[in-house]
Design a protein around this nucleic acid. Structure first.
Lengths: 163, 163
DNA sequence: TCCAGGGAATTGACGTGTCAATCGGGAGGT
DNA sequence: ACCTCCCGATTGACACGTCAATTCCCTGGA
């Protein structure tokens, strides 16, 4: 029976019921959306969203190759996550790894022809899925608002990172 | 029912650059937000969001117990996912499973005292984290818009489910 | 009686993600 | 030269999710 006293509610420490409803709705919906997009991508091209992100970055890179840690920074992944993922992609022949001539202990990641091909094949259906599942679901105002919400959330996360 | 007009469908199969930017922003930001909320929950109470969802449902259930498949439906999980998760939670002593007397082959899931305790301890910090990381980041208008966007996306996903 | 089928739940295999070691070189200081 | 420290990358252990079997039991024909 240590429920919030009136004093503790001062300054609104806890979300209201309505705010909480929106939170749950928001989280569950974005999860469902992600999983739909992922399963379409999988069905269309046997790629995961992670594969797609890596292949996209490599496709746009000079010489279709990139140092491992640069790639990680570029797509915003932890290095160990990338290392695991590259291992799986290498097994499937989508990329290759090679020692970097310039950086000691560095690794070059390079796109194989099969990887470039898989990426090319996947692009169109993937973008179409994004349009159908995300863009088409929203009015122009809502789409704009979604962008602003993302910016506000990210900004807020950033400012809180120092704690 | 503001479905895409024939013109719209024919004219623009792919998202524009701006739409795509919003999509990426939206996806990455919601992922970052989820992971922040999850890591706070973990730090505050050693629970994952999955644990929290299960414990919340059981806490609100009659007699603090529920049939496994009812629980799965209640939190919107696949049964096999729930089964795996319950296994992990049972190892940690948060829940227990018992044969259901009424349903053949049915399983009752019930909250242990330790599980009830962990949930009670986690609630306040978790709700506070939601407030700080989500609610506080947005203006009232943006919060309302987030709810509407979630509703629109979910509605749209639902209508496309038949394909 | 036997057995096909169906529902509830579990299991196994595997992809994915995080965290904490670990490895293998160069610097830099002494 | 030796030793320490840092840096790039990998590895191992484990949590989490999904999909495809599989198990167990019950029920409804033939």
């Amino acid at each position: 029976m240590t429920s919030a006293t009136p004093e503790r509610r001062r300054g609104r420490q806890l979300p209201t019921t309505e705010e909480l409803r929106i939170w749950r709705d928001f989280v569950e919906t974005t999860e469902a959306l992600n999983s739909q997009v992922a399963s379409r991508l999988q069905a269309d091209s046997s790629l995961s969203p992670g594969d797609y992100a890596v292949l996209l970055a490599l496709s746009e890179a000079q010489g279709r190759q990139m140092r491992s840690s640069v790639l990680a920074a570029h797509i915003g992944w932890e290095r160990s996550r990338l290392s695991h993922h590259l291992g799986r992609m290498e097994r499937r022949g989508l990329i290759r790894r090679r020692e970097c001539p310039t950086v000691p202990r560095g690794a070059e990641v390079l796109l194989t022809p099969a990887g470039a091909d898989a990426f090319r094949q996947s692009t169109f259906p993937h973008l179409r899925a994004i349009r159908e599942l995300f863009v088409d679901a929203l009015t122009p105002d809502q789409l704009r608002a979604a962008g602003e919400i993302a910016a506000a959330l990210r900004e807020h996360l950033g400012t809180r990172r120092d704690e």
